[in-house]
Design a protein around this nucleic acid. Structure first.
Lengths: 127, 127
DNA sequence: ACAACTTATATGACACGTCATTGAATGACA
DNA sequence: TGTCATTCAATGACGTGTCATATAAGTTGT
């Protein structure tokens, strides 16, 4: 009944899902237990950390992650409350916000990134 | 500062995430609007539909999806309440449950599967 | 046959993401 | 300059997932 090419598509999709779930789960649990931040929080830290120029507005970040604007706003809010990031309003356009890591944020990111990369290596390695 | 091999890992991961988010989002929205079921619900229907033998206990399904046992239990509960699936207790081991599609469930699955495969094709196609 | 352990599923508290909406600032244009 | 539309971010209501636990049934060893 099922077309073989459909079967193959479905399997490809399930494989992506499985990889995603397992990897995301492992990352989330590790970051949570060792650094008390979730994977989403780390991902924002990571994006802010790697953005060299000052043009690090939330809007730009939104273009670099599949996260919703709403989700981002809440994550950034948590990071702010945790003292890992700071939001400064931008003079050019007062609707925008500039994000930057605090010292604590930078330190935590540096450590967490090591763990993060290591787990990616474990999980994404071709078996 | 960042090792190039790490960069590559990170990009591989982000690519998986993006594919996963976009595809899952598209599937979820389409199934929700056209058939009033979420992606997770569809996935359970799909698994039950493709399990030929009667040995379709929740436990087995759990082995075929990255979903949590808890999550599965709730999804199945919703499907049951929606009249798309039925849980019959198993005589051999009364802790287990057999799942099977109702007629409505089978009909809905048949239609939804077409949409599902089509969207997978759109989203997973190599660009 | 009785404890102690293990396994299959359900459930409650809680956290997070989504959608829709709001508030505020900007742009466009007559 | 005043109106209308657009853009950036925040928020509240709501659904669904997760963890820890509960419930119930099966298993093992004595």
């Amino acid at each position: 009944m099922a077309k073989p090419q459909d079967q193959q598509l479905v399997e490809q999709w399930r494989s992506i899902q499985t990889t995603y779930f397992h990897t995301a789960g492992a990352l989330d649990r590790a970051l949570e237990s060792k650094f008390s931040i979730g994977l989403t929080e780390f991902e924002i830290l990571d994006l802010v950390a790697e953005s060299t120029d000052a043009a690090c507005r939330m809007k730009q970040l939104g273009e670099r992650t599949p996260m919703t604007q709403s989700a981002m706003s809440k994550v950034v809010d948590r990071l702010d409350k945790a003292g890992l990031i700071s939001r400064k309003s931008c003079e050019d356009d007062r609707r925008s916000l500039f994000l930057e890591l605090t010292d604590a944020g930078r330190a935590l990111h540096r450590q967490a990134a090591v763990e993060h990369r290591a787990l990616l290596r474990e999980n994404l390695a071709k078996d």
